[in-house]
Computed example of a mutant assay.
Amino acid sequence: MLPDAVAALRCPVCSGTFVLDHQAQLTLKCPTGHAFDAAKQGYFNLLTGKGTVFESDSAQMVAARQRFLDAGHYAPLEEAVAGLASDFLDRPGSLVLDAGTGTGHYLRTVLDASPKAAAIGLDISKFALRRAARLNPEAANLVWDLWRPLPVADDAVDVVMVVFAPRNPAEFARVLRPGGTLIVVTPQPGHLADLASLGGMLKIEEGKAERLAATMSGYFTEAVEHTLDVPLVLSGSEITDLAYMGPAGHHLRREEIDALLHGRATLATTAKFQLSAFTGGPRLS
Rank of each mutant, 00 (worst) to 15 (best):
G199M: 05
S217F: 00
G102P: 13
E79D: 12
G51V: 00
D158H: 09
N45F: 05
Q23W: 01
L252S: 12
M245Q: 00
G200N: 09
K126A: 15
K126E: 14
A271R: 02
E78F: 08
A59F: 09
K116L: 15
Y74D: 04
G246Q: 03
E256R: 07
S86D: 07
D258N: 12
F220S: 14
E55P: 06
F164K: 04
P187V: 02
T109V: 09
V6L: 08
R174A: 11
G179V: 00
R177D: 12
K272E: 10
S285K: 04
A119K: 03
D123K: 02
L242M: 11
A38D: 03
D154P: 08
G49Y: 04
V53C: 04
Q188N: 11
H262L: 12
H191N: 15
F88K: 06
R67G: 13
P169L: 04
L129P: 15
G218F: 02
K203F: 07
L150D: 14
W144H: 15
L261N: 11
V62E: 04
M216V: 00
G263A: 11
L150P: 15
S276E: 05
A5P: 12
L212D: 13
C30M: 07
D258F: 05
G93I: 01
L275C: 11
V62I: 05
G104L: 05
L129D: 15
F273A: 11
L28Q: 09
F18M: 11
D112Y: 03
P3A: 02
E55A: 14
L2S: 10
V233Q: 10
E238M: 02
V224A: 13
L267I: 01
K40W: 05
D229K: 01
I239F: 14
F88V: 06
A80H: 08
P178R: 04
L84H: 06
L89M: 05
Y244I: 01
G49W: 08
L150T: 07
A156K: 06
G121M: 06
I120F: 13
S58V: 00
D37W: 02
A99T: 06
A38T: 01
A99I: 03
L46T: 09
T109Y: 09
I239R: 11
C30V: 10
L195M: 07
D37S: 08
V184I: 10
A271L: 07
L84D: 01
T52R: 07
R264P: 11
F68K: 01
L212H: 03
R177I: 01
T240V: 06
A153P: 14
S235N: 05
A82V: 01
A209M: 12
K272I: 03
C11V: 04
C11Y: 01
T27K: 13
C11H: 03
H22N: 14
L142T: 06
C30P: 15
D70I: 02
L232F: 13
Q41P: 14
S58T: 02
A196V: 10
G281R: 01
L122N: 09
L69G: 02
L142N: 14
R177V: 03
Q23E: 10
A271Q: 03
A139C: 12
L69V: 04
G236S: 13
L111R: 12
R134L: 11
L77A: 07
S86P: 10
Q41I: 02
E138D: 08
A5W: 00
L97P: 11
L107Y: 03
M161K: 05
L142Y: 08
P169Y: 00
L284K: 07
R167E: 12
H251Y: 04
